[in-house]
Design a binder for these strands. Structure first.
Lengths: 257, 257
DNA sequence: AATTTATTCGTACGGCGTACGAGTCGTATG
DNA sequence: CATACGACTCGTACGCCGTACGAATAAATT
């Protein structure tokens, strides 16, 4: 007997601390901020009195470390044990703050998509420039963390993504896009950014593996003359192409505004 | 380098048979292999040979079964042992035909992206309709296999994807899009389709899990008024929105043709 | 008959996510 | 002061995964 009075399902009291907005500086550089990861095999008799209070774990620290790890090792390179190591903690300690690995992915993805807003003042009349800046920043954020593109299709929309959508929606609305066209316009732009990022991400992996795999699948005899002639896959001015295509799209949107 | 298929590295002779397109009825035979895990010392001088000649494995069968499995269980639900089971084979038998699991993903993804071509005759003057059909079919193919969206960002481009790009490139070229704008136009359309598919895929998962996750991340107090007012996330006429946005984009492309 | 080649598959290994419960520590309460 | 408790950490263990390795077998060739 001695049944626990807790719910039928495993219902652990998890923290899920909702901290406002962290992500102070976006750090992609070689940030090796791990304090000291004291190996656990050290004699436990010593140092029973910690000279400094250990910072302990927190959701924010976990997410930050996860992003760091994802940046350097990719989606498949994120392992719970390694993440814990980098934080100087035991693997299972993470699970007090986080429900499971999926939640780490969710939080890491959303944390990377925070938007600081346009540099100008609000109420700008230049809605086209505003949209441009917003979408370029969006793409830049995701390109800075290429794993975000491969995570996006499988994850729910977090608050930062929704905020971006909200902002985009606002701008277009202020620009006078008809209500009937608004949603389609938003999706067009959203789709364009996501697609551009995904495309780019699939070209950015290690060149060695990529060319080998491509050769195998492609077969050496076949060619794609039009593609080859236009250097579609070889031209690497991705930024320019992105801007140009966005121009096309906005041209299509503009007449209805 | 790498001129011959033989290399200094461990280089097993793998088949990699390239055959066109085949989708015979697949079967999930009641193969209840109950191999009593008896050590070799168990009296087994009796040669228990297979009563039937096995149809054996083939790359095509493996890929077809993988697609089936991906359709029903999703990306994380594809396991090598299960895939082999479904083919009535031992797990390790797969590895004669396939280098590793990644290759299964590559092949499954590309196999799903084959394009049958437009229904009309070639040389149509209606390039806009042609592009429309091509992109709608593209999207439909990926939506029929939602896992394709999440696989795309991490995989190389296979022959079927390249063929689609080639065809698109051709159509736009025939339509008179300036060479200087061609690549940007192609990427615009490609990005749009991919983005639309990814977006859709991220909304199509189990509603239960999705709403729960979204609630947790969103926080119940915050709202996104503009989004909410426009019913952006609630309106589920995805097909209509896709067409409308594509119209916008083509409007933007058209003046330059 | 002997050898080679093509193919299948049993076993085993290391690594993963994480369930479970014991351990630690600061504070609130008697 | 003793005790209890809640917040938090972590060692161990389990089941599952991809796949390295090499033995087994059938068909083709010599």
């Amino acid at each position: 007997m001695a049944a626990k009075p807790s719910g039928p399902q495993g219902d652990r009291p998890r923290r899920l601390r909702a901290s406002p907005q962290s992500a102070p500086p976006q750090s992609a550089p070689p940030q090796s901020a791990s304090p000291e990861s004291a190996p656990p095999e050290s004699g436990s008799s010593e140092s029973l009195e910690g000279p400094r209070t250990e910072p302990s774990l927190s959701l924010d620290r976990i997410v930050a470390a996860a992003v760091e790890l994802l940046d350097t090792r990719g989606v498949d390179g994120l392992k719970m044990r390694q993440l814990a190591d980098r934080l100087g903690a035991g693997a299972m300690s993470l699970y007090w703050h986080v429900e499971n690995k999926e939640m780490v992915f969710d939080l890491a993805l959303d944390s990377v998509l925070a938007y600081r807003g346009p540099p100008q003042k609000a109420e700008s009349r230049d809605w086209r420039g505003e949209v441009f800046h917003m979408l370029e920043d969006w793409r830049a954020s995701m390109l800075r963390h290429p794993w975000s593109a491969s995570l996006l299709p499988r994850r729910a929309l977090g608050p930062n993504i929704l905020s971006r959508l909200e902002l985009l929606s606002n701008t277009l609305s202020r620009a006078g896009v008809a209500d009937a066209d608004l949603n389609a316009a938003i999706w067009s732009l959203w789709n364009y950014v996501i697609g551009a990022t995904v495309t780019r991400a699939s070209f950015v992996l290690s060149d060695e593996d990529r060319s080998v795999a491509q050769q195998r699948l492609t077969g050496l005899g076949e060619h794609y003359p039009t593609i080859e002639r236009s250097r579609l896959l070889l031209d690497d001015d991705w930024d320019g192409a992105f801007r140009k295509g966005l121009d096309f799209l906005l041209d299509g949107l503009a007449p209805r505004s």
